[in-house]
């Protein structure tokens, strides 16, 4: 079959053959390996561990786990319910407000819709909202509006804006130009153009992301209490502070149960939308 003049030397080719490496460029390959090794040594080396304290950990952990059992749902029932209601209401309101506000921000952060100044401003909002962990934002809001679920709600709403607007803006930038142009060609105004040409294309994703964010917001609402922003995290923190580990265990179980329920519900909703 081979048309080349010299016959193919399979033995020589086999001698020359090497298994293909993961990274083709040898400099980059060895650089990455060496870098990883050096980092691992330095990184692990600089971790300061109090080994005697950690060694006690096993025994402590055992005692701690023993304190978890059996979970006590009853003694602090009122507190748990109150915290749970706070968390759930925070989740609902913040998701609603966050989504409502994220749509204009997303439109502003889409290069194909917004003029440059508005684009930069909206992208800035998104970057700040996404870069800071919710807890840090909660600290600022607590400082501004005082302790309680309002601070938590504002935090989650702000985080929702960054999350939703970034993903939505990506989607809007990817829309079918022809469809949007067809609507514009009918002489539609800017608002009708958005409503008829752009939103229908991103609606399934909007709904899917909203369900997902609802899920995340509940999860996050469980920790904002640690800095005084209300919710079930507050109750959990108090339980830990008072060494009421059986109550803490109960709260953790409740959180896991609700997260699971949210996950199934949002999975179901996303399938239903598609």
């Amino acid at each position: 079959m081979s048309l080349s003049a010299a016959p193919f030397d399979a033995a020589a080719a086999a001698r020359a053959w090497r298994p293909p490496p993961l990274i083709a460029n040898p400099w980059l390959r060895w650089g990455v390996y060496l870098g990883a090794l050096v980092y691992a040594l330095v990184g692990i080396g600089t971790v300061e561990v109090n080994w005697t304290r950690a060694a006690e950990g096993l025994e402590r952990g055992a005692r701690f786990l023993a304190g978890f059992f059996p979970p006590d749902f009853v003694t602090k029932r009122e507190d748990i319910l109150e915290g749970l209601l706070e968390s759930l209401t925070m989740t609902v309101v913040s998701t609603a407000i966050g989504i409502a506000l994220s749509i204009p921000v997303a439109l502003g952060a889409s290069r194909n819709l917004a003029p440059l100044p508005i684009y930069l401003f909206c992208r800035g909002v998104i970057a700040v909202s996404r870069s800071f962990q919710e807890v840090i934002i909660a600290i600022v809001f607590v400082a501004m509006v005082g302790f309680g679920p309002l601070a938590g709600m504002l935090t989650l709403a702000f985080a929702t804006i960054g999350f939703m607007a970034k993903l939505l803006a990506e989607d809007i930038e990817d829309i079918e130009r022809s469809e949007a142009e067809a609507v514009r060609a009918t002489g539609a105004g800017w608002f009708s153009w958005i409503a008829w040409g752009v939103l229908p294309q991103v609606k399934p994703r909007l709904i899917g992301l909203s369900a997902y964010r609802l899920d995340i917001n509940f999860r996050e609402s469980a920790v904002l209490g640690l800095v005084g922003a209300g919710g079930i995290g507050d109750t959990l923190n108090t339980a830990f502070d008072r060494y009421e580990f059986d109550t803490a265990a109960a709260i953790l179980l409740v959180i896991i149960a609700i997260v699971l329920a949210c996950e199934y519900a949002s999975g179901w909703l996303r399938r239903w939308v598609q």
Binding site: V135, R219, E220, V223, V259
Partner: peptide, 15 residues
């Protein structure tokens, strides 16, 4: 289901 901050809370008590 459990946020890393809560894991940290628990682990700080243990370790």
């Amino acid at each position: 289901s459990i946020n890393s901050l809560i894991w940290a809370l628990v682990l700080v008590i243990i370790l």
